[in-house]
Design a protein around this nucleic acid. Structure first.
Lengths: 119, 119
DNA sequence: CCGTATCCTGTTCGATACTG
DNA sequence: CAGTATCGAACAGGATACGG
């Protein structure tokens, strides 16, 4: 128990292939977008829902819970009225920045290429 | 219709966010694994099916067709008996190597971390 | 060997309504 | 505001059988 990463995760549960291991944690569209939108910093639930766009409350809640269990996301509840709940990335979550960056870089280059092909 | 990358892809069809654009093309587990296994070079359909593991023929065929339509994969049919069909990455497909690498790197580091936590 | 067609299952997800 | 509960639609994906 060195630090607070993922709770009951054992090596046996993880695929042999590192790529598949990563996909197991962020292989879902919504998870990647949560990561993207929390990378700059803390956000409230409502902000997150809006910035992601097109996600239902139910699904967003479920994904945030999963990512919390994986040790990627931290949830902070403030005992106020009306209630305020803030989400942020853990160090482990922030360590995925290179992955996000590569996705963004490729997407940018691809969009440029498509735009150039059309005209 | 300038060249042979992606056929009817227009800028309007793509999400504003580059990350989402990338996800639109390889946001699926199987697509990423096809990419991983074709990155070293050409493979036959059967080889691919086996090396990916756990994918059904139907789904693999469908994903390969989609990726061909996106301009990521090339399909080469040899008129032999029994038939031989080989798949390989296009330059555009190979350009995704940095993305694959970042996924692999993170997965490797994560597995190491988990292993260290257990003992 | 590679691919298609059909059927059928489980899962994912959105919509809506309701609670602290 | 930030959930939870429930329902039903849509889709992904496996199994099987058949065709070129």
């Amino acid at each position: 128990m060195t630090e607070k990463t993922a709770l009951g995760v054992s090596s046996q549960d993880l695929p042999a292939c590192p790529v598949e291991t990563t996909l197991k944690l962020i292989g879902n569209k919504w998870e990647v977008l949560v990561l993207r939108d929390l990378m700059p910093g803390t956000k409230r639930f409502g902000e997150l829902k809006q910035s992601i766009g097109g996600v239902s409350q139910k699904v967003l809640t479920a994904k945030l819970r999963e990512m919390e269990a994986s040790g990627l996301v931290e949830r902070h509840v403030y005992a106020e009225v009306p209630p305020r709940v803030e989400y942020s990335l853990t160090p482990l979550g922030r360590s995925l920045k290179p992955v996000l960056d590569s996705l963004e870089q490729w997407g940018t280059a691809y969009k440029k290429k498509v735009a150039a092909t059309v005209r």
